[in-house]
Design a protein around this nucleic acid. Structure first.
Lengths: 253, 253
DNA sequence: CCACAGAAGTGAACGCCGTAAACCGTAAAT
DNA sequence: ATTTACGGTTTACGGCGTTCACTTCTGTGG
């Protein structure tokens, strides 16, 4: 977002940068291993040349993960956009369901983004990675539901100290800005919800669940619907279940 | 468990087998990479020799993961055993908290066991891996709570079809045997709980959560306590929170 | 007791991988 | 026009999983 004088060289460089990422993603999509050499070869270069752009293999992975997350989020958003803007509940469910479908269809990509130890690595972008762009989407959607229904939210004062800090001054810019301080308990509800969504999906994708439940998505649906009442959607449960199941029906791959 | 004629050679072989696993685990504990060459070198052998015991690197990983899970489960069980046998609620909480602590102290081991795609690999042991030995422990503990408190459990008939199959004829031997068919809804409750526990802990370990919440464990505690009422522990919440926080306090590493 | 089958282990080799260093042409900057 | 520095190549190192041919040893049956 800094000024972009974009000298010719800079533009070229940025283009190569982008090509590295797209090539990597293409590689993953074709179920091949992601390696510096493979990426370089596909671009008609040699591996060491990539070191002009990334400092290490891990940095490439981080870069790719970031972009994958961005693209996937766009997909979740597109799914939501199939519904009218005022159907905030439906939009959340559809996005979450699409998240699950994406995870099953692209398990390696899912693992890269959501099950990669990003703890120690370069501090740059760490904030951006810690809560990913998909985090932005879901926080925004939960917030939209709250603004429409004003479901009860825990008082900030009732939260444990660290939780208070976390909701008042989130490490992520997130969609929290503009939420009044006394309503920040909403962020806590969001984190509870994200924990559950993340839990079922990860469990499913990594195969630590009865295959029949993965196939049918019953535990996923159950988890979603069980959380719905906490965000004021108790009355919508039947409709939401239909929405979710419809989107779950088409088994990917 | 088959008959053990244990000719001398077979015993030797079994010993080497065991040494391979222990060496691998030692390697992981010292934060070194797990590789066939490293394992072999430490045992005073060469890498190709290991192929007399495992068919591939992945098979070694699976083997090690299995053993790690076993040992970790022993640790969770030991934690529970610090409490009297009739404190079924406390035992579950303490085991779960120990699970979390272990995951944080041994993130790589945790990843190996719980965030490894075990889907496609050799069918042998697949059952044993799908629900791991820790699964056995937790199912058993939830069952103990149910036998003491008889908290309400969904009727099997009310479950979705695939869920009915899953609770009636689980892919895992599990602790389900001996539970009357009409009470198998208990298994469903278990799966809901496991989803949540798995979700928070994985979220924490993989760094996709506000570091302050990881440090304090507040979201973990919240998740545990929020689930407690569903298994008839509403009245015990304050005591259980104390138990959990005590065990969470000592930050590993 | 001996010969033989087969198990256990070695050494060399192949084709990958990430990464480092030296080197070079060419495009930008002065 | 000269210098700088960027983007690229070559070569090389060490490590990886894996294969294969070969040896050594051990348990066993004649």
């Amino acid at each position: 977002m800094t000024a972009e004088p974009t000298t010719r060289r800079e533009r070229q460089r940025e283009a190569t940068y982008a090509e590295i990422v797209t090539t990597s993603i293409a590689l993953l999509r074709e179920r091949e291993d992601l390696s510096l050499r493979a990426v370089a070869q596909r671009m008609g270069m040699t591996a060491p040349a990539l070191y002009r752009y990334v400092a290490s293999y891990q940095e490439l992975v981080d870069l790719v993960a970031f972009e994958i997350d961005r693209e996937a989020t766009e997909r979740f958003r597109a799914a939501a956009d199939e519904l009218p803007v005022d159907d905030v509940a439906g939009r959340l469910c559809v996005s979450a369901a699409e998240f699950r479908q994406w995870a099953h269809g692209s398990p390696r990509e899912f693992g890269l983004v959501f099950a990669n130890p990003i703890a120690d690595s370069a501090c740059i972008r760490r904030d951006a990675l810690t809560l990913s762009s998909s985090g932005h989407l879901f926080t925004g959607q939960i917030r939209a539901i709250w603004e429409q229904r004003h479901f009860p939210v825990p008082a900030v004062a009732d939260l444990p100290p660290a939780a208070q800090q976390a909701v008042l001054d989130p490490v992520i810019p997130a969609e929290s800005e503009g939420i009044a301080v006394e309503d920040r308990g909403l962020m806590w509800v969001y984190m509870q919800g994200w924990t559950q969504l993340y839990g079922v999906v990860t469990l499913e994708v990594f195969g630590h669940m009865d295959p029949r439940l993965v196939e049918s998505g019953d535990l996923f649906v159950d988890t979603m619907l069980r959380f719905a009442p906490r965000i004021g959607l108790a009355d919508d449960v039947p409709r939401l279940e239909a929405l979710i199941r419809e989107r779950i029906a088409a088994h990917p791959r």
